[in-house]
Design a protein around this nucleic acid. Structure first.
Lengths: 334, 334
DNA sequence: TTGCACAATGGCAACGTTAACATTTGGGCG
DNA sequence: CGCCCAAATGTTAACGTTGCCATTGTGCAA
């Protein structure tokens, strides 16, 4: 207690317990080839000295860090919290830790994320892509650093995983058409959003698959305000009986916009959103929406790296479908 | 290219550049005592071999990791994303990394967070407290591991930082009384929430400071639904001209609940929330609310650890005030 | 010319851990 | 009684980096 020891090493424990350093190491790893009473003596010494294995020594010896790096260009973003929950859960399962890094988005390249990570104690890395990196086509992951991208785009050298934005639109369109609507109007988002663009494509293709030419879309900007404006515009369109908004905020805004023009939801117009983010925030509106499992996306990414555990596993691409959650904002016309 | 080298070390670079390992090390650290042309030769060798300094070797030698651990009992939680943004920003500034860990909350103790972190490569740790840990009074941080708690409670051995929930209520009450309201009704939250309880205390004390006995509060559960119910209850209370809800979802729910009883906001009743979380989600309602700077909270925590950089700095307690943001939901009675 | 300061570089050891191999001990069996 | 095997423990070396000190080379004042 008097002098503050720099740090307690196996050597100190070994000396106190009267055994070799190796036996201490074996005890730490609970090797069966140490006599129970010896183990107990060593454990007692560890407790007395407050021994904690040194991560650096261990990693140096093993050549592994048991850590996955996560690179984000934007920390705040829809779904990031759920994804992190997934990262943490999967890491935990494998006995790994997560190292988080914010990467400056100027320029917005995978290379910058990769070089940022290269100096950190990680065995593999996950990059969350919100936009299209300038070097997406040419990027090569660092040798020995398994790299997983969170995006819907497939990469030839890196595994990828994301919620299926394309299928999400398909589900919504099928759902609406299945309830007798002749078409589905769409409120889009800014064009630089990768996931938003995929939702838009999915909407178009799903309609065309039914021989329906997609109507003019209304461009939004993710905010409820833009949804409100879109709702007012669409309220005057007599062909519009169902609206699919690319997120919940716009969907909710749209509902209020429709109401401001005397149109009721779902009696006059049906509305569907995406994200299931309104839940606790809006009281008197159970929005029909699509719920993504971003936690699972996060888990898949870390599983891919921690699960391989050195053995270089092949490149895989995973899309995790969302689930359409029925609320009270769609009318069945049949 | 043929054989995959395990990893490139200073030794390899030294050999190729025809210098000693030490000179390579000096070049990496840009020491002035290496001739520019030698440096260039070494750098060329590093490039050719793709040398990346090994974190484990370095940490082992230095005894520092340049990493701050963040322990969370719940990853998903209001403000966590902003806090993480702050962690990442501050870490970046100091050349540190962030290691994220989810701690199982059974039992909910600081000790469990601490022991979880002890095996990871971190120089200090931040714990985000949502509830009251069982061992808050007795907890001692690990020797040599600077520990910062994110909470409003002051701890004798650990620095603490949080948004000022107490002052937030004071601001709201002062604001309402200043606009001629005789009192402020309160919609609270579950009792296990530390921050919620501080908001409640703040509300009580602020009223008493003006000689006003706090009216009966209505207990909510953070959701808009509970706010809705509270609004319906309070709509029938003739003494109620102003309502302070402990988060925005309940405030918004409350507004809708009041409207469902024919009361208009702000004409009949004023409503104030906390968190500024409605922003993009609700279109036709600019709620008067309190905006916290959780990013700054996160930055402060990491600054405290990374800024000290080994030199054990003293225990400090920091409260970061929120800012009341005026919307359209408060009526001036004067 | 000698001596000396200083710049540039090299050699060695140590950080804490653990894999691989070596040694000791005790027991069973021919 | 000697041999061999297995269990338990010890010894050595190496992972990659860098602080410390030693060595070499160069220019300059005495």
């Amino acid at each position: 207690m008097a002098a503050v020891k720099k740090s307690v090493s196996v050597k100190d424990v070994a000396r106190l317990a009267g055994v070799s350093e190796q036996t201490v190491s074996r005890t730490v790893h609970d090797s069966p080839s140490v006599r129970p009473e010896t183990k107990e003596r060593v454990r007692a010494a560890m407790r007395e000295l407050g021994y904690r294995p040194n991560f650096a020594g261990r990693s140096l010896r093993r050549g592994k860090f048991k850590t996955v790096g996560v690179a984000m260009f934007n920390i705040t973003g829809t779904g990031n919290l759920d994804r992190m929950e997934g990262f943490a859960a999967a890491a935990d399962k494998h006995g790994y830790a997560i190292t988080l890094t914010k990467v400056d988005g100027h320029p917005y390249t995978l290379e910058s994320a990769s070089s940022r990570m290269s100096a950190l104690p990680v065995d593999g890395m996950v990059v969350i892509m919100n936009r299209m990196p300038a070097d997406f086509g040419t990027f090569e992951p660092l040798p020995g650093m398994q790299t997983v991208l969170v995006t819907m785009l497939e990469h030839p050298l890196c595994s990828t995983v994301d919620s299926d934005q394309f299928d999400c639109s398909r589900q919504v369109v099928e759902y609406l058409l299945g309830r007798g609507h002749k078409t589905a109007h769409f409120i889009s988002c800014p064009e630089r959003s990768l996931s938003g663009m995929r939702r838009e494509e999915g909407w178009r293709e799903a309609l065309r698959a039914h021989g329906i030419e997609p109507p003019q879309l209304v461009r939004g900007d993710w905010t409820a305000q833009s949804g409100y404006a879109a709702g007012q515009v669409l309220a005057d369109d007599p062909t519009c009986t169902a609206i699919y908004a690319s997120n919940d905020a716009m969907a909710y805004g749209c509902i209020r916009g429709l109401e401001s023009r005397g149109k009721h939801v779902p009696e006059d117009v049906s509305v569907v959103g995406v994200d299931d983010s309104l839940g606790d925030i809006v009281p008197d509106c159970r929005l029909t929406t699509v719920r993504f499992d971003n936690k699972r996306v996060g888990m898949w990414a870390v599983d891919k790296i921690a699960g391989a555990d050195g053995g270089a596993s092949g490149v895989e691409h995973m899309l995790i479908p969302g689930v359409l959650v029925e609320g009270d904002t769609v009318r069945d016309l049949r």
